[in-house]
Design a binder for these strands. Sequence first.
DNA 1: CATGAATGAGTCTTCATTCAT
DNA 2: CATGAATGAAGACTCATTCAT
Lengths: 218, 218, 218, 218
Amino acid sequence: MASPPVRTRSRLAPDERISEIMAVTRQLLSEKGYQNVVTSEVAERCGISEGTIYKYFDSKRELLARVAEEWFEEILGADENPPPGAGIRTRLRQLVWKGLSIIRQEPSLSRFVLMELRSDPTYRTMRIYELNRRFTARIGDLLQEAVSTGVFRADVSVRLLRDMIFGCIEHRTWAYLRGEGDFSVDEAADGITNVIYRGMLMPGVQDEGASPQSKTKR
Amino acid sequence: MASPPVRTRSRLAPDERISEIMAVTRQLLSEKGYQNVVTSEVAERCGISEGTIYKYFDSKRELLARVAEEWFEEILGADENPPPGAGIRTRLRQLVWKGLSIIRQEPSLSRFVLMELRSDPTYRTMRIYELNRRFTARIGDLLQEAVSTGVFRADVSVRLLRDMIFGCIEHRTWAYLRGEGDFSVDEAADGITNVIYRGMLMPGVQDEGASPQSKTKR
Amino acid sequence: MASPPVRTRSRLAPDERISEIMAVTRQLLSEKGYQNVVTSEVAERCGISEGTIYKYFDSKRELLARVAEEWFEEILGADENPPPGAGIRTRLRQLVWKGLSIIRQEPSLSRFVLMELRSDPTYRTMRIYELNRRFTARIGDLLQEAVSTGVFRADVSVRLLRDMIFGCIEHRTWAYLRGEGDFSVDEAADGITNVIYRGMLMPGVQDEGASPQSKTKR
Amino acid sequence: MASPPVRTRSRLAPDERISEIMAVTRQLLSEKGYQNVVTSEVAERCGISEGTIYKYFDSKRELLARVAEEWFEEILGADENPPPGAGIRTRLRQLVWKGLSIIRQEPSLSRFVLMELRSDPTYRTMRIYELNRRFTARIGDLLQEAVSTGVFRADVSVRLLRDMIFGCIEHRTWAYLRGEGDFSVDEAADGITNVIYRGMLMPGVQDEGASPQSKTKR
DNA sequence: CATGAATGAGTCTTCATTCAT
DNA sequence: CATGAATGAAGACTCATTCAT
């Protein structure tokens, strides 16, 4: 092992320190999952003492929750509006694509939010709950609209459709995470949209046709 | 005097002991989830000492993994054959229903396999991996057959379809676990089958029609 | 520092270990007071690891409380009955003497019970509370009897008299602890009894006269 | 625009700063007791940094000790002289009343002095020791005078009488602190004075009679 | 061979004190 | 000179694992 790197007592502005701690924690969360993030390792990677973490965060839980929130906000912030006058299919694809790419970009963090935080008794009171809810609601609203306007059949619940979409997104992503095969956001978005749209389209309604991929292509 | 009915310090054959430990662990896993299974409690419930567990299992992880394997095998073993001559839709629904009911019945164990074990670096070498693969493969094979025989379109990958199915199953189940809404295996199986089947059915091919629920019910 | 004393993993029967831990804790409590008893030192003095303590006690608090209880019971157990037909003065002196000698023998433990435990929110539910109450009640009852039978005046509350007695006992003992002067249980018992008895004796009632010291001496 | 009413970073003279720190600490000590006074809170309430405290005080202990000293001095300073020509009983009651009301008014501070500081190895060298001693000495001197002039008997040591008085005061106050029953300074002062005075009065000496309460009543 | 007492590395958290800026 | 970011040693407590009996 190398001699310690000068061990100069680093001194940062609070904001920078907070950022650093959160960045390191995000990374760690990404690598190991919530239960396995340990304060001592956060401190070590930051090159600070454990005590310093507690200067800025009341508890490990708070730290993790804030990391998740920040990240979620970051991602959901960048929101394109749907093209005006776009049909159900186009708008559905856009949302599915967004969901896929979110998880694709930060899969372990997704997992943390989706699996760990969501089980927290106070989850419902956290800001991240609201952020999360807002996104799923957009898909739910779109599906509801499709049913209400007679574009979609009414024989499968909106609830189940939402589960199919998010379930597929999550499943696909985790498989990717575990190194199982490749994963194209565009292809997956197309596939999901196609199956759901065609599977739900009311007989007799004109199919919008697949939206040209280029529209949402990154 | 009659011999005391006292449960004398049980002296079980190794196989029985192993069975008992695994049964107790399964119960515990089911109640509390992987991270919260503690060896001391396993020992206590078995009425044995902690040390004894280590006579039969190298580590907690190994114990848990074997429990999961046994359980999986048990469940996948009880396999009704599809009715001879059944169509794609009927067979698809049967498999989806099976997957849903497995997770529905033993959600904590599922979660353990799905979330914890699957992340294990050696997961691919575990027998449970093979068992798991075998089940998903059956769905994969069915879907592949549907595509090959021209019943399903070829514009969505079998892979993605499988993800939609399993993702939805898991997603639905976890939501249920967290107390979000009710969950009917039959309704979900119908919904998933409908969307996938209708969404993938090759234009021009005759729809089998929804199979009467009674066929696979319960 | 000397080389570690053979560091042989000692192995004791649970009862012995528990006794040892409690004995060591009693000693430590005696030396430093509740707040300053640290689990690591208990372990070190026992020559065991900290974990072992927690095999036998759920928490530090529980350990300390049990130490106090055991000790109290030990002391209050050895209870001489008052000589039959003894007057107020004799019986008062006997109780005062007992109280003094209890604290004299184990002053730091007394202090722990009196000062720390007594502030515990759950103190009232502890067994030690009952033990303690029983002793103070005996003095209270005696004083009440004296007032009721017209031996004592009624112009000072029983409550205050009890406080004078116990307050004096505690005060005297702590001073002693801090090394302030000597402290004779007999002399103090006589003094307290004299002042209280003479100070409260109803005018016109015949003074029993000081009981000969030899009766309760040592 | 008017200059902002913003409390600019206060730039106090050292003396004022010291006063402020001590005042805040006294308040905190009074609220929470010694062990629970934390330097960070002192700093926060003063609107200064933690480091600054250490500019003026070597350690937390020193700060606390000086607070106690100042407070004690303040209290003992405000001393009414006994009415000229007052008898033993009157003067005794006055002192007892004083002692009771001191503790009654500032129980947490008393407790700190009585329980924590007094155990300090260097207690005897602290100024507070001297202050404390001076007050107890006044009672001691009075009792001594009573004995020397033949008003009090000589069969109980002055030492013990002092302990009865202070012990009772402390005991009564702590019970009150723990919420056990009410506590009247006047009643307690009367009771203590009565018992001690009557209990010690030399036979044949004329009882001064209870001093009218109004004399020392607040 | 089973036991179960003991371990010890590790967990999160607290706080009086220091020192570079 | 005051600051306040950082420290680090200590606190109670947990639990998978070991090994002498």
